[in-house]
Structures are given as structure tokens and as C-alpha cells.
């Protein structure tokens, strides 16, 4: 997903300061009516989110026969972990490992090259720097689905087909435009005087990048790490086309393999769904605040 409207310049003055949540003064009857309305709408949506998730959870604990006969939302009569054993015995470790490697390497590559690019763009007003930036702006508009055929050809020619690198390189390439975009809008808010002061002290470009740009853009870097991490972790088309063997399968692709393998066995498929989400769920539970704040910091500043 991409944007062409990254920065909200009016907010640029105070990117980090948090205002207290708006809580307008209390009102009487009209107010409580309003509260009831928004409250019930919120609960309705909560149900729309919770019921499917609950269903996935309890279905993954059902026995196969139980699934076909019992009421979908009832608690399973004999809950079983057998479905999870089936999935874990089906090479889940490999898929998890591949997903972690692909996501971590892609994000590191993307963020490193994008930070350097963003630094150049933000610190240069030359014509080629502007063209350079425009290239990435153009890139925002290219849906990665549209170029899958030439990417497939390219990967074959580079002898990378059916390797993790075949997923990593194109994924990183397509994450660059949005990442550059977010980082540039952050870096532009850093006062020039800070860089100039460093320059006066004799610091070169690289030193400015590591000692000034990097720490100052930390909120934006969290954003792009989280955003790109989610995108790559969940990516499906590149793995679908660019890899084929089980040894190279990442989790989303493995899910479709499991589905094919289990067929009618919906409980086992749901166990695979749960397990594939578990790593990211654990990460979410442990670092919820950082994840949520990180996801929006770069977009909404």
C-alpha cells in the first residue's frame, strides 16, 4: 500500500507533542444519547471482529467429526490439540523460519537503503535529487501485482527462482518508495541548523546520517519497520510465483498448502491459521504500544 500524501505539513511543527485526547465538556440528555449510540455501534463492531476470531479459535480445537455436526459457536465437547500437532508435524517450523528470515532481511535492507536515499533527498536541492525523489513517487503508483510476470522472468534469469532471496529482493524493492516517502517527510522537519552545526564541527555526510538523521527519525523508522514488516510477513503473491518447494515456503503460502493437504479438515486448517498468526500476536501482546504508535507515527504526523 502506498501513499502520495505522506506529510501533513501543518502538523510538522509539533510532531512529537501529544495533545490530551479531546474530551469536550459533559452535556446532559443529548450527550448520554450520543454516548449510547456510539457505544452500541462500537460494541457491534467489536462483535463483528470478535465472533469470527472466536470461531477460528474454537474450531481449531474441535475434532473433525464434531465440526460437521455441532453448532459452530458452541464450545467443543471434547476439545483437542490434535489439530495443532498435525500442523506442527507438517513442517511448520520450516515455514516459520522462512517467514522470519524473509521479513527480517527484507526490512533491514529496505530501511537501510531507504534511510540513505531519504537523507540524500532531504539534504539536497539539486535537480537530480528532485528527479530521484520523483522516481520513487512514481514507484508508489505501481501495484506490485502488475509487474509479477517480468519479475518472474528476471528471477529466473538471475538463477534465484525458488530461493528466499527471490522473495526478499523484489519485496524490498517494492517497499522502498513508501519508506523513502515517510522518512523524507520526517527528515525535512529536522531543522537545517542542526545539520549545519554538525558540519561546522567537521562531520561528514555519513556521520550526519548516523549521528543525527538516524536518531531523529526513530519514530518514523519504527513506523516503516512495523508497516513493512507486516506487509512482507503477510505477502503472498511473490512467494506464490517465485518459489515452489516446501523448503522455501513462507507462512502465507504454507497456509494454502495446508488447506490443500487437509481438505475437508477445516479444524486443522484453522489450527494452521492460528499458528501462522501466533508469532505476530505474541509480538503484539508484548510490544503493543510501540506497534500501534509506530504504525501511525509516520502516517499521521
Amino acid at each position: 500500500m502506498t501513499t502520495t500524501a505522506p506529510a501533513d505539513p501543518t502538523r510538522a511543527a509539533a510532531p512529537v507533542t501529544r495533545h490530551r485526547p479531546s474530551r469536550p465538556p459533559r452535556r446532559s440528555s443529548a450527550h448520554s444519547f450520543y454516548r449510547t449510540m456510539t457505544g452500541s455501534a462500537a460494541l457491534l463492531w467489536a462483535a463483528i471482529v470478535a465472533v469470527p476470531l472466536y470461531w477460528v479459535m474454537i474450531t481449531s480445537l474441535r475434532e473433525r467429526a464434531d465440526f460437521l455436526t455441532s453448532s459452530p459457536l458452541s464450545l467443543p465437547e471434547n476439545s483437542t490439540l490434535a489439530n495443532y500437532r498435525t500442523v506442527l508435524g507438517g513442517g511448520f517450523g520450516t515455514y516459520l523460519f522462512n517467514s522470519v528470515v524473509v521479513t527480517a532481511v527484507t526490512v533491514v535492507i529496505t530501511v537501510t537503503v531507504s534511510l540513505m536515499a531519504a537523507f540524500v533527498i532531504a539534504r539536497n536541492s539539486s535537480r537530480w535529487a528532485r528527479w530521484y525523489f520523483r522516481l520513487f513517487l512514481l514507484g508508489l503508483a505501481i501495484p506490485l501485482q502488475a509487474v509479477i510476470i517480468p519479475v518472474y522472468l528476471l528471477i529466473i534469469r538471475m538463477q534465484l527462482y525458488d530461493s528466499l532471496l527471490a522473495i526478499i529482493l523484489p519485496s524490498a524493492a517494492f517497499a522502498i518508495p513508501i519508506t523513502v516517502m515517510i522518512l523524507v517527510s520526517f527528515l525535512r522537519d529536522v531543522p537545517d541548523s542542526l545539520f549545519e552545526a554538525m558540519q561546522m564541527d567537521g562531520a561528514g555526510e555519513w556521520k550526519q546520517l548516523f549521528n543525527l538523521a538516524l536518531p531523529l527519525t526513530r519514530p518514523a523508522i519504527v513506523t516503516v519497520v512495523v508497516y513493512n514488516g507486516l506487509q512482507v510477513w503477510n505477502g503472498f503473491l511473490f512467494p506464490l510465483i517465485l518459489t515452489q518447494s516446501n523448503e522455501q515456503a513462507v507462512l502465507p503460502l504454507a497456509l494454502t498448502l495446508f488447506r490443500g493437504q487437509f481438505g475437508i479438515d477445516v479444524p486443522a486448517t484453522m489450527a494452521a491459521v492460528v499458528l501462522s498468526t501466533l508469532p505476530i500476536l505474541i509480538l503484539f501482546i508484548v510490544a503493543r504500544r510501540q506497534l500501534i504508535a509506530g504504525l501511525t507515527a509516520g502516517f499521521s504526523k
Binding site: 507438517g90 513442517g91 511448520f92 516459520l96 528470515v101 516446501n246
Partner: peptide, 17 residues
Amino acid sequence: LLAAAVVTGCGSSGPAQ
């Protein structure tokens, strides 16, 4: 997580791999 993945990835050789 990475470490866990390495361990499980190398330790458990399921039928699919």
C-alpha cells in the same frame, strides 16, 4: 523469535521437509 525459529526449523523435521 528468530532464535526460536532456527531451533524449531532445524530440530523438527516433519514429513513435509
